[in-house]
Protein backbone atom coordinates (compact mmCIF):
# COMPACT_ATOMS: atom_id res chain seq x y z
CA UNK A 1 0.00 0.00 0.00
CA UNK A 2 1.35 3.40 -0.96
CA UNK A 3 1.91 5.91 1.77
CA UNK A 4 -0.03 9.16 1.58
CA UNK A 5 0.08 12.64 3.06
CA UNK A 6 -2.54 14.41 5.17
CA UNK A 7 -3.90 16.33 2.17
CA UNK A 8 -4.17 13.09 0.21
CA UNK A 9 -5.93 11.47 3.15
CA UNK A 10 -8.42 14.35 3.24
CA UNK A 11 -9.05 13.80 -0.46
CA UNK A 12 -9.36 10.05 0.04
CA UNK A 13 -11.91 10.49 2.84
CA UNK A 14 -14.08 12.82 0.75
CA UNK A 15 -13.89 10.42 -2.21
CA UNK A 16 -14.91 7.54 0.05
CA UNK A 17 -17.81 9.56 1.46
CA UNK A 18 -18.95 10.63 -2.02
CA UNK A 19 -18.69 7.02 -3.18
CA UNK A 20 -20.58 5.50 -0.27
CA UNK A 21 -23.29 8.09 0.32
CA UNK A 22 -25.24 9.81 -2.48
CA UNK A 23 -26.23 12.56 -0.02
CA UNK A 24 -22.65 13.80 0.30
CA UNK A 25 -22.01 17.06 -1.58
CA UNK A 26 -18.63 18.82 -1.66
CA UNK A 27 -18.46 22.52 -2.48
CA UNK A 28 -16.56 25.73 -1.98
CA UNK A 29 -14.36 28.16 -3.87
CA UNK A 30 -12.16 26.57 -6.55
CA UNK A 31 -12.92 23.02 -5.39
CA UNK A 32 -14.23 21.88 -8.77
CA UNK A 33 -12.05 21.89 -11.88
CA UNK A 34 -9.12 23.29 -9.93
CA UNK A 35 -9.42 20.67 -7.19
CA UNK A 36 -8.92 23.19 -4.40
CA UNK A 37 -5.98 25.52 -3.88
CA UNK A 38 -4.27 22.83 -1.76
CA UNK A 39 -5.68 20.05 -4.01
CA UNK A 40 -7.89 18.64 -1.25
CA UNK A 41 -10.63 18.00 -3.80
CA UNK A 42 -8.33 17.05 -6.67
CA UNK A 43 -10.11 14.83 -9.18
CA UNK A 44 -13.36 14.65 -7.21
CA UNK A 45 -15.46 16.65 -9.67
CA UNK A 46 -14.28 14.49 -12.56
CA UNK A 47 -15.24 11.35 -10.63
CA UNK A 48 -18.46 12.41 -8.95
CA UNK A 49 -19.81 15.05 -11.26
CA UNK A 50 -20.35 18.79 -11.12
CA UNK A 51 -23.67 18.35 -9.30
CA UNK A 52 -21.96 16.87 -6.27
CA UNK A 53 -18.57 18.58 -6.36
CA UNK A 54 -19.12 22.19 -7.22
CA UNK A 55 -17.64 25.65 -7.26
CA UNK A 56 -19.59 28.30 -5.40
CA UNK A 57 -19.60 32.03 -5.90
CA UNK A 58 -16.93 33.79 -3.87
CA UNK A 59 -18.98 34.27 -0.72
CA UNK A 60 -18.13 32.54 2.54
CA UNK A 61 -21.31 33.35 4.47
CA UNK A 62 -23.17 31.90 1.51
CA UNK A 63 -21.11 28.71 1.62
CA UNK A 64 -21.90 28.14 5.29
CA UNK A 65 -25.54 29.14 4.85
CA UNK A 66 -26.01 26.82 1.91
CA UNK A 67 -24.41 23.98 3.86
CA UNK A 68 -27.00 24.58 6.59
CA UNK A 69 -29.84 24.56 4.08
CA UNK A 70 -28.59 21.38 2.42
CA UNK A 71 -28.10 19.67 5.77
CA UNK A 72 -31.60 20.71 6.85
CA UNK A 73 -32.90 18.90 3.77
CA UNK A 74 -30.97 15.75 4.68
CA UNK A 75 -27.90 16.09 2.49
CA UNK A 76 -24.42 15.68 3.96
CA UNK A 77 -22.68 18.86 2.83
CA UNK A 78 -18.90 19.13 3.09
CA UNK A 79 -18.09 22.79 2.53
CA UNK A 80 -14.62 24.18 2.11
CA UNK A 81 -13.47 27.59 3.25
CA UNK A 82 -10.27 28.23 1.34
CA UNK A 83 -8.28 29.55 4.31
CA UNK A 84 -9.27 30.02 7.93
CA UNK A 85 -8.50 33.73 7.49
CA UNK A 86 -11.66 33.93 5.37
CA UNK A 87 -13.88 31.89 7.66
CA UNK A 88 -15.15 34.81 9.71
CA UNK A 89 -18.17 35.65 7.53
CA UNK A 90 -19.40 32.12 8.33
CA UNK A 91 -19.47 32.78 12.06
CA UNK A 92 -22.95 34.25 12.06
CA UNK A 93 -24.30 31.29 10.11
CA UNK A 94 -22.53 28.85 12.42
CA UNK A 95 -23.42 30.43 15.75
CA UNK A 96 -26.94 31.62 14.91
CA UNK A 97 -28.05 28.66 12.82
CA UNK A 98 -25.82 25.59 12.34
CA UNK A 99 -25.33 25.07 16.05
CA UNK A 100 -28.93 25.91 16.93
CA UNK A 101 -31.03 24.18 14.30
CA UNK A 102 -31.60 20.99 16.29
CA UNK A 103 -32.16 22.92 19.52
CA UNK A 104 -34.49 25.51 18.01
CA UNK A 105 -36.73 22.93 16.43
CA UNK A 106 -36.58 20.39 19.27
CA UNK A 107 -34.92 17.93 16.92
CA UNK A 108 -37.30 18.45 14.00
CA UNK A 109 -34.54 19.82 11.76
CA UNK A 110 -30.88 18.93 12.16
CA UNK A 111 -27.62 20.14 10.67
CA UNK A 112 -25.20 17.35 9.75
CA UNK A 113 -22.71 19.57 7.93
CA UNK A 114 -18.92 19.79 7.81
CA UNK A 115 -17.11 23.09 7.35
CA UNK A 116 -13.50 22.36 6.36
CA UNK A 117 -10.70 24.90 6.38
CA UNK A 118 -6.92 24.81 6.31
CA UNK A 119 -5.46 26.73 9.21
CA UNK A 120 -2.26 27.72 10.95
CA UNK A 121 1.06 29.31 10.05
CA UNK A 122 4.44 28.25 8.84
CA UNK A 123 4.01 28.11 5.07
CA UNK A 124 5.23 31.63 4.23
CA UNK A 125 1.73 32.58 3.16
CA UNK A 126 0.41 36.12 2.59
CA UNK A 127 -1.32 38.16 5.27
CA UNK A 128 -4.55 36.62 6.69
CA UNK A 129 -3.48 33.10 5.65
CA UNK A 130 -1.79 31.88 8.84
CA UNK A 131 -3.98 32.35 11.89
CA UNK A 132 -5.15 29.69 14.31
CA UNK A 133 -8.49 30.82 15.67
CA UNK A 134 -10.06 27.48 16.55
CA UNK A 135 -11.05 28.79 19.98
CA UNK A 136 -13.70 31.01 18.37
CA UNK A 137 -15.52 27.89 17.21
CA UNK A 138 -14.74 25.91 20.36
CA UNK A 139 -16.77 28.50 22.26
CA UNK A 140 -19.95 27.72 20.32
CA UNK A 141 -22.38 25.36 22.06
CA UNK A 142 -23.70 22.67 19.76
CA UNK A 143 -20.62 22.48 17.57
CA UNK A 144 -17.81 19.98 17.22
CA UNK A 145 -14.34 21.23 16.33
CA UNK A 146 -12.02 18.55 15.03
CA UNK A 147 -8.35 18.88 14.05
CA UNK A 148 -6.41 15.95 12.57
CA UNK A 149 -2.64 15.70 12.84
CA UNK A 150 -1.66 12.66 10.77
CA UNK A 151 -2.82 11.05 7.51
CA UNK A 152 -4.58 8.23 9.38
CA UNK A 153 -6.39 10.64 11.66
CA UNK A 154 -7.20 12.99 8.77
CA UNK A 155 -8.93 10.13 6.95
CA UNK A 156 -10.70 8.59 9.92
CA UNK A 157 -11.74 11.83 11.57
CA UNK A 158 -13.01 13.45 8.38
CA UNK A 159 -15.16 10.40 7.69
CA UNK A 160 -16.41 10.61 11.27
CA UNK A 161 -17.18 14.31 10.83
CA UNK A 162 -19.15 13.64 7.65
CA UNK A 163 -21.10 10.84 9.34
CA UNK A 164 -21.75 12.87 12.48
CA UNK A 165 -25.39 13.95 12.89
CA UNK A 166 -24.36 17.43 14.08
CA UNK A 167 -22.29 20.27 12.61
CA UNK A 168 -18.52 19.89 12.62
CA UNK A 169 -15.83 22.46 11.91
CA UNK A 170 -12.89 20.46 10.58
CA UNK A 171 -9.64 22.40 10.68
CA UNK A 172 -6.71 21.06 8.72
CA UNK A 173 -3.17 22.00 9.81
CA UNK A 174 -1.86 23.06 6.44
CA UNK A 175 1.83 23.29 7.48
CA UNK A 176 1.89 19.50 7.87
CA UNK A 177 -0.39 18.78 4.87
CA UNK A 178 2.62 17.18 3.11
CA UNK A 179 5.08 16.77 5.96
CA UNK A 180 4.58 13.08 6.70
CA UNK A 181 3.28 9.98 4.96
CA UNK A 182 1.46 6.96 6.29
CA UNK A 183 -0.25 3.93 4.91
CA UNK A 184 -3.97 4.71 5.05
CA UNK A 185 -6.28 1.83 4.15
CA UNK A 186 -9.30 3.19 2.28
CA UNK A 187 -11.67 1.04 4.30
CA UNK A 188 -14.30 3.68 5.07
CA UNK A 189 -13.69 3.24 8.79
CA UNK A 190 -14.26 6.37 10.84
CA UNK A 191 -12.24 7.14 13.95
CA UNK A 192 -14.08 8.19 17.11
CA UNK A 193 -14.80 11.87 17.70
CA UNK A 194 -14.79 13.48 21.14
CA UNK A 195 -11.72 11.54 22.28
CA UNK A 196 -8.04 12.38 22.55
CA UNK A 197 -5.39 10.20 20.95
CA UNK A 198 -2.49 9.06 23.07
CA UNK A 199 0.59 9.33 20.84
CA UNK A 200 3.34 8.50 23.37
CA UNK A 201 3.27 6.87 26.76
CA UNK A 202 5.50 8.49 29.35
CA UNK A 203 5.76 8.98 33.06
CA UNK A 204 7.32 12.37 33.82
CA UNK A 205 5.20 14.98 32.07
CA UNK A 206 2.04 15.22 29.96
CA UNK A 207 2.29 17.16 26.69
CA UNK A 208 -1.13 18.18 25.36
CA UNK A 209 -1.45 19.56 21.85
CA UNK A 210 -3.24 19.35 18.48
CA UNK A 211 -2.78 20.17 14.83
CA UNK A 212 0.60 21.06 13.36
CA UNK A 213 2.10 21.50 16.82
CA UNK A 214 2.10 17.71 17.13
CA UNK A 215 5.27 17.86 15.04
CA UNK A 216 7.25 20.13 17.40
CA UNK A 217 5.79 18.42 20.44
CA UNK A 218 6.92 14.97 19.31
CA UNK A 219 10.35 16.40 18.44
CA UNK A 220 10.56 17.84 21.93
CA UNK A 221 9.48 14.50 23.41
CA UNK A 222 12.23 12.73 21.43
CA UNK A 223 14.93 15.14 22.60
CA UNK A 224 13.72 14.94 26.19
CA UNK A 225 13.67 11.15 26.00
CA UNK A 226 17.37 11.28 25.11
CA UNK A 227 17.88 13.27 28.31
CA UNK A 228 15.96 10.68 30.30
CA UNK A 229 12.69 12.62 30.54
CA UNK A 230 9.68 10.54 29.62
CA UNK A 231 6.67 12.32 28.05
CA UNK A 232 3.06 11.33 27.66
CA UNK A 233 1.95 12.98 24.41
CA UNK A 234 -1.75 13.59 23.80
CA UNK A 235 -3.30 14.77 20.53
CA UNK A 236 -6.58 16.36 21.62
CA UNK A 237 -8.00 16.00 18.06
CA UNK A 238 -11.56 17.01 19.04
CA UNK A 239 -11.10 20.31 20.85
CA UNK A 240 -14.86 20.70 21.28
CA UNK A 241 -16.27 18.84 23.15
CA UNK A 242 -13.14 18.22 25.14
CA UNK A 243 -12.09 14.77 26.36
CA UNK A 244 -10.68 15.89 29.70
CA UNK A 245 -10.82 12.37 31.13
CA UNK A 246 -7.83 11.29 29.05
CA UNK A 247 -5.86 14.40 29.98
CA UNK A 248 -6.73 14.09 33.67
CA UNK A 249 -5.78 10.41 33.69
CA UNK A 250 -2.44 11.26 32.17
CA UNK A 251 -1.78 14.07 34.61
CA UNK A 252 -2.74 11.78 37.50
CA UNK A 253 0.15 9.62 36.31
CA UNK A 254 2.74 12.31 35.50
CA UNK A 255 1.81 15.18 37.80
CA UNK A 256 3.00 17.71 35.25
CA UNK A 257 1.41 19.22 32.18
CA UNK A 258 2.54 21.40 29.29
CA UNK A 259 -0.10 22.57 26.81
CA UNK A 260 1.10 23.53 23.36
CA UNK A 261 -0.92 25.42 20.75
CA UNK A 262 -0.26 27.76 17.90
CA UNK A 263 -3.20 30.04 18.68
CA UNK A 264 -2.91 33.14 20.83
CA UNK A 265 -2.75 32.40 24.54
CA UNK A 266 -5.62 34.34 26.11
CA UNK A 267 -8.86 32.36 25.97
CA UNK A 268 -7.18 29.78 23.77
CA UNK A 269 -8.31 26.18 24.17
CA UNK A 270 -5.25 25.72 26.39
CA UNK A 271 -6.86 28.07 28.90
CA UNK A 272 -9.88 25.79 29.15
CA UNK A 273 -7.68 22.72 29.60
CA UNK A 274 -5.62 24.50 32.27
CA UNK A 275 -8.79 25.66 34.03
CA UNK A 276 -10.18 22.13 34.12
CA UNK A 277 -6.85 20.81 35.37
CA UNK A 278 -7.10 23.36 38.19
CA UNK A 279 -10.68 22.31 38.90
CA UNK A 280 -10.37 18.56 38.68
CA UNK A 281 -6.66 17.70 38.70
CA UNK A 282 -5.01 20.16 41.04
CA UNK A 283 -4.15 17.56 43.64
CA UNK A 284 -2.31 15.48 41.03
CA UNK A 285 -0.10 18.36 39.99
CA UNK A 286 3.47 18.68 41.25
CA UNK A 287 4.07 21.89 39.31
CA UNK A 288 2.06 24.71 37.73
CA UNK A 289 0.65 23.95 34.29
CA UNK A 290 2.71 25.54 31.52
CA UNK A 291 1.33 26.90 28.27
CA UNK A 292 3.49 27.20 25.17
CA UNK A 293 1.43 29.13 22.66
CA UNK A 294 1.32 31.86 20.08
CA UNK A 295 1.44 35.29 21.66
CA UNK A 296 -1.45 37.68 22.24
CA UNK A 297 -0.43 39.66 19.19
CA UNK A 298 -1.61 39.81 15.62
CA UNK A 299 -0.11 36.77 13.87
CA UNK A 300 2.92 38.39 12.23
CA UNK A 301 3.50 38.17 8.51
CA UNK A 302 5.85 35.42 7.45
CA UNK A 303 9.21 37.09 8.14
CA UNK A 304 8.44 36.75 11.85
CA UNK A 305 6.01 33.83 11.91
CA UNK A 306 8.56 31.42 13.33
CA UNK A 307 9.15 33.82 16.21
CA UNK A 308 5.44 33.67 16.96
CA UNK A 309 4.81 29.97 16.74
CA UNK A 310 5.89 27.61 19.54
CA UNK A 311 9.23 25.96 18.78
CA UNK A 312 10.64 22.67 19.94
CA UNK A 313 13.02 24.65 22.14
CA UNK A 314 10.22 26.57 23.82
CA UNK A 315 8.41 23.31 24.55
CA UNK A 316 11.57 21.74 26.03
CA UNK A 317 12.13 24.83 28.20
CA UNK A 318 8.57 24.66 29.51
CA UNK A 319 8.87 20.95 30.29
CA UNK A 320 12.10 21.55 32.21
CA UNK A 321 10.43 24.36 34.12
CA UNK A 322 7.70 21.99 35.32
CA UNK A 323 10.41 19.53 36.38
CA UNK A 324 12.23 22.17 38.42
CA UNK A 325 9.35 22.17 40.87
CA UNK A 326 9.49 19.60 43.65
Amino acid sequence: MAEITIIEAVNLAMARALENNPDVVVFGEDVGVNGGVFRATDGLQQRYGANRVLDTPLAEALIAGMAIGMAAEGLRPVAEIQFMGFIYPTIEQMICHATRLRNRTRGRITCPMVLRAPYGGGIHAPEHHSESTEAIFAHMPGLRVVIPSSPLRAYGLLLAAIQDPDPVVFLEPKRIYRMMKQEVPDDGEALPLDVCFQLRDGTDVTLVTWGAMIHETLQAADQLEAEGISCDVIDVATIKPLDMATILNSVAKTGRCVIVHEAARTCGVGAEIAAQLAEYGLLSLFAPVQRVTGYDTIMPMFKLENDYMPSTERIITAVKKTLEEA
Binding site: V25, N51, R52, A59, A61, L62, I63, A64, G65, M66, A67, I68, G69, M70, A71, A72, E73, G74, L75, P77, E92, Q93, C96, H97
Partner: peptide, 18 residues
Protein backbone atom coordinates in the same frame (compact mmCIF):
# COMPACT_ATOMS: atom_id res chain seq x y z
CA UNK B 1 -30.87 37.56 12.40
CA UNK B 2 -31.88 39.54 9.33
CA UNK B 3 -31.32 37.98 5.89
CA UNK B 4 -29.25 35.07 7.23
CA UNK B 5 -31.86 32.68 5.87
CA UNK B 6 -31.35 33.68 2.24
CA UNK B 7 -28.16 31.59 1.83
CA UNK B 8 -29.91 28.75 3.66
CA UNK B 9 -32.83 29.00 1.27
CA UNK B 10 -30.35 28.60 -1.59
CA UNK B 11 -28.96 25.47 0.06
CA UNK B 12 -32.43 24.02 0.50
CA UNK B 13 -33.30 24.86 -3.09
CA UNK B 14 -30.07 23.25 -4.26
CA UNK B 15 -30.94 20.06 -2.37
CA UNK B 16 -34.33 20.01 -4.12
CA UNK B 17 -32.72 20.57 -7.49
CA UNK B 18 -30.03 17.92 -6.93
Amino acid sequence: PIATHVPQCAGIAYAMKL
